[in-house]
Simulated assay, not measured.
Amino acid sequence: MNPAAASRARLPFFVYGTLRPGERHHAWTLAGRTVREEPARVHGLVLYEGPGYPYAVAGRGTVTGALIEPEPAAYTDVLRLLDELEQYTPGGAANLYERGPATVHLADGATRTAWLYTAAPPLAARLRASGTVVPGGDWPRGAG
């Protein structure tokens, strides 16, 4: 999917930290607003520990999480909430995370394109230099 088309797409979301089902931010951002939540993975990422939440960074690894598909009527609100939570503004110079399309692998072997929040470039560089990797790319099970 080209970047221009992706920026307008109503893609599902791949979540790997506090937005995963059962985690603290899922309840107020996603619970009751989804039509599908299923285990998934994204290859080509390394997960780093953060201050109470993880950061995904491009690398040689796999991150475990969930594919979340919002209800059509809730999509705009969910997108706004997640962008705010992840401190992401399209084109913003001070973003904590960047949002972009990624290929998500489901347990049945299928793949889907979904939005993924990854650490913004300045933070990603710091994490690669001195961050703590989450073993196995599965947070919180691999954290701490």
Rank of each mutant, 00 (worst) to 15 (best):
I68P: 11
V35T: 14
P12R: 00
D77Y: 13
P121I: 06
L47V: 01
W28Q: 05
T29K: 06
T34G: 07
Y88L: 00
Y117F: 14
R41K: 03
R126Y: 10
T76F: 09
H43D: 14
T62S: 11
P54I: 03
R128M: 08
R141T: 13
G32P: 11
R41V: 01
G50P: 11
R112H: 10
L96C: 09
R36A: 15
A94I: 09
T18W: 09
T76V: 10
L127C: 14
T89K: 13
L82Y: 04
L11W: 02
D83H: 05
G32T: 09
L127P: 12
G109Y: 01
Y55F: 15
L30D: 05
P122S: 05
E37A: 15
P101G: 03
R36N: 12
N95A: 12
Y97H: 08
P140L: 10
P72G: 04
Y75L: 11
L79H: 13
T64C: 13
T18K: 08
A120G: 07
A9Q: 01
G91N: 07
V35C: 10
G61E: 01
T29C: 15
V133E: 13
Y97K: 13
P54K: 11
R20I: 00
P3M: 03
L123M: 12
V46H: 06
E86M: 00
A125Y: 10
L45I: 02
A40Y: 03
L85V: 10
G50F: 13
L96P: 04
E49D: 12
T62N: 05
T113K: 09
V42W: 08
V42Y: 08
V133S: 04
R112W: 04
V15G: 00
L106T: 12
L116H: 14
A124E: 10
P122A: 01
A102L: 01
W115E: 07
G44S: 04
A114W: 12
G22I: 00
A56I: 04
P54H: 08
Y55I: 11
L116D: 08
G59I: 08
P101W: 04
R60D: 10
R33W: 12
A93I: 03
L67N: 02
F14M: 00
R126G: 01
Y117P: 01
T18H: 09
A40W: 07
P70I: 06
V42P: 03
A107L: 15
A58Q: 10
A93N: 08
P12C: 06
E37D: 15
W115F: 07
L106W: 07
G65M: 05
D108S: 07
R126C: 08
E98I: 05
L19Y: 01
T64S: 14
V57L: 14
L81D: 13
G92I: 07
A110G: 14
L82P: 03
P54E: 12
I68K: 05
R36Y: 06
G44I: 00
T18I: 05
L30R: 09
H43V: 04
G50V: 07
P101I: 07
G22N: 02
P121M: 06
A129W: 13
A107R: 15
Y53R: 11
E38G: 05
A143C: 12
A74C: 06
L47F: 03
G109E: 06
G137R: 13
V104A: 03
L11D: 02
F14Y: 02
M1D: 09
Q87G: 03
E71Y: 01
A58D: 15
G17F: 00
V46A: 09
E84K: 14
